[in-house]
Design a protein around this nucleic acid. Sequence first.
DNA 1: CTTGTAGTTCGCGTACTAGCGAACAATAGA
DNA 2: TCTATTGTTCGCTAGTACGCGAACTACAAG
Lengths: 103, 103
Amino acid sequence: MLSSVPLHPSPSKTQLRLPVVLFALSDPARLHIVKTLDTRGETMCAGVGLRLAKSSCSRHFKVLREAGVIRTRRHGTAYLNTLRREELDARFPGLLDAVLRAT
Amino acid sequence: MLSSVPLHPSPSKTQLRLPVVLFALSDPARLHIVKTLDTRGETMCAGVGLRLAKSSCSRHFKVLREAGVIRTRRHGTAYLNTLRREELDARFPGLLDAVLRAT
DNA sequence: CTTGTAGTTCGCGTACTAGCGAACAATAGA
DNA sequence: TCTATTGTTCGCTAGTACGCGAACTACAAG
């Protein structure tokens, strides 16, 4: 029983692209996810409290994941999501902070 | 003959909304417009050098205008566009700079 | 009044987005 | 093995985005 598995389609082999990242952040539901991950740290999909169908939730997480905004790993039956702060800050300094600060 | 006219559908009576602004910035053509306005100051639509039909250009400017990212005024037959730096910086501190810095 | 310049608006086709439910996959525990 | 938990993926519908050309508006100058 591994305590954490790397996991998932594409954490982001795509070099982070600004338009893609901005698009990922341009949806209220996804902004909510990002804010929640920022304040609570590792969180399960269900833990962010979106009032959407599971499938819709899943897609939003997928958009963020493929844009390189978040990373998902698995721990047992739980999927734990985190912000990719370091990568984002390295490539787009100040962007994530500015977005998070903007309510 | 007035030297400048306020002008245009809606410079942005809509209180700046983050998702809308991020969406406006999530398109390569519009990012290019924003960068050009930042470096050159007041610029005409034609002046940013987009390789698109006039109508497409016009729509991109409209998206930016309605999101509150740019302002357009008219001077004779010329339409001069500027970034709404103050408003953006006031509402979303650091956001525009972060986007502009991110290549 | 006519022409030229600079954008805007409209209609059209194509493509993508977002929402949903239903069916599937993987893991932990009884 | 059977069941519950968590997401993922698929197929569908409705709405929107983006590209274009064509027709229109507004202003300036001859």
